[in-house]
Write a protein that binds this DNA or RNA. Structure first.
Length: 497
RNA sequence: UCCUGAGUAGCUCAGCCGGUUAGAGCAUCUGACUGUUAAUCAGAGGGUCGCUGGUUCGAGCCCAGCCUCAGGAGCCA
């Protein structure tokens, strides 16, 4: 575990010598050193040159075989995808294109890879094709970079909150509450579908079910998070979330990961400050710790853009886009202000919007959000104080404005290319107002008694938000389809692997 | 769920107005070469044209239904 080497153990004996990770090898100046490297063959060129990758770096090491001193039958097995162990000497490369290489002394095939069947070739594959072989796509440069960044961002989330004294709270995956109404839920049940127990009126008798009641996979840990925030002050959740919506877009998954901080004694402004600080911290963390990966993805995007018409190409490359986000304050405007900007905007006046802005009260369409973020402000935008009618019951009510319109203390952070990346609010802490709102929205108060207890005993102002982790990874990696930033995407009609 | 588009070799794609034996590049296999960088050169093999049905003398191509994928919309994170 020292000098960048790790040990591999079998169950009862050490089966392999220490290996050197390729990432460390690529930085070494230790010429003449004898090393063992293990990895997977990317290509084997000219019967001499193995491009070897062990996942530690997006870059390969070149191992050079003297084909006269090795069995031809052994060299034949150096196919793309094969796992090999190489003992050799670190030497300065004779060729151009790499600084160092390994002169191979011993070569062992650990696992063959039938070239006729292995689907990955040393060439560009479409992301659609790689999605069909998600179990192997980790071995490509692109997904090596994407999932390294995903890891770094996940770690950074915990570091950010831990450093601020937040408590990481595990909220339940299986939940009985479906109160938030955040979309269709997946039912959790052990009832035999061929023999459903029924009540006299024909409805399903959930008393017979595993939990003795109807249960679902969680759509949000927020309500439970609020309970914890009312004791710990500052908490966050970071876990899987499930929505059974039939959404077929580049931004939606049936199973995704969400980060939900909840803070006592925060108002909406504190909430926005924290969200903006978090997003900038995470972007900065990726820039600081994933330089190689981001560089690779930047070039990948530039390559891809070449095939697009000039008008559709983006203004910035990936790194410039990320830095731009760091250097600028997010624009904060109210829903009411946004509506007036949109009403007077060119696309609205010229009737280029598919949905024209008529007046106050309806939700903004994605074309409107995109206009605000990508055309008008050209930076991330935080929209606040939405009409109460289109938002959830737990959001804190504002006093009606001069025209008698009621809004809630909600905020959505909109990012270019992604749309809504964060949704949050200051919560309604006043019991009577909350109960009245629940009644209006037909939310059964009896079932939510545990939630309302927070307002009955020591209620306090508090706020929180949800950050879609995959949407963040999308933004940072510059990928365009959310199915390519989660290892095993679950979408309608697809739960392969 | 709605709208639009697509589905042809392992991959990426071409296939004219419905007409003979469905093509290319890459990959694979065989051989050559041996400091290559998506190596190169020569040759070979490889097809349920998404599925089902229909129209027609004749369907990869036209029609209907279904499945899957992609992009957009809605819902949202």
């Amino acid at each position: 575990m020292v000098n960048g080497t790790i040990c591999i153990f079998a169950t009862h004996k050490k089966i392999m010598a220490k290996r050197t990770r390729i990432k460390d090898l690529l930085n070494t100046t230790d010429f003449g050193k004898k090393v063992t490297v293990m990895g997977w063959v990317k290509t084997f060129r000219n019967n001499q040159f193995i491009a070897l990758n062990d996942g530690s770096s997006i870059n390969n090491i070149q191992a050079v075989v003297d084909f006269n001193s090795f069995d031809e039958s052994l060299l034949k097995r150096l196919t793309t995808g094969a796992a090999v162990s190489i003992k050799g000497e670190v030497v300065e490369s004779l060729g151009k294109g790499q600084r160092i290489e390994i002169k191979v002394n011993e070569l062992e095939i650990l696992g063959d890879s039938d070239a006729e069947k292995f689907p990955l070739q040393p060439k560009k594959h479409s992301l659609e094709f790689l999605r069909e072989i998600a179990h192997l796509r980790f071995r490509t440069n692109t997904f090596n970079a994407v999932f390294k960044i995903r890891h770094a961002l996940a770690y950074a989330v915990h570091k950010f909150f831990n450093d601020k004294g937040f408590v990481y709270m595990h909220t339940p995956i299986i939940t009985a509450s479906d109160a938030e109404g955040a979309g269709e839920m997946f039912r959790v049940s052990t009832i035999d579908p061929d023999n459903i127990p029924r009540n006299e009126d024909g409805s399903i008798n959930y008393k017979e079910d595993f939990f003795g009641r109807a249960t679902n996979l969680t759509v949000s840990g927020q309500l439970e998070g609020e309970l914890a925030a009312m004791a710990f002050g500052d908490i966050y959740t970071f876990g899987p979330t499930f929505r059974a919506e039939n959404s077929n877009t580049t931004r939606h998954l049936a199973e995704f990961w969400m980060i939900e901080p909840e803070m006592a004694f925060y108002d909406l402004n504190d909430n926005m400050d924290l969200a903006e600080e978090l997003l900038k911290y995470l972007i900065q963390y990726a820039l600081d710790h994933c330089a190689d990966e981001l560089e690779f993805l930047k070039n990948r995007l530039l390559e891809e853009e070449k095939s697009k018409p000039q008008a559709e190409r983006s203004e910035f490359d990936l790194l410039a886009k990320l830095n731009f986000c760091l250097d600028n304050n997010f624009e904060r405007i109210s829903y009411t202000e946004a509506v007036s900007i949109l009403k007077n905007s060119k696309p609205n006046q010229k009737k280029q919007f598919k949905y024209l802005i008529e007046g106050w009260g309806s939700d903004l369409q994605s074309e409107h959000e995109r206009f605000l973020v990508e055309k008008h402000f050209k930076k991330p935008v935080i929209l606040t104080d939405y009409p109460a009618d289109i938002k959830s019951f737990y959001m804190r009510l504002n006093e009606p404005d001069a025209e008698g319109r009621t809004t809630v203390r909600a905020m959505d952070i909109l990012f270019p290319g992604i749309g809504e990346i964060v949704g949050g609010s200051q919560r309604e802490e006043r019991l009577e107002k909350l109960e009245k709102r629940m009644e209006e929205m037909h939310i059964p108060a009896e079932e939510m008694s545990w939630y309302l207890d927070t307002r009955r005993f020591g209620s306090a102002p508090h706020a929180g938000f949800g950050l879609g982790f995959e949407r963040l990874v999308l933004f940072v990696t510059g990928m365009t389809n959310i199915r390519d930033v989660i290892p095993f995407p679950r979408t309608p009609k697809n739960a392969e692997f």
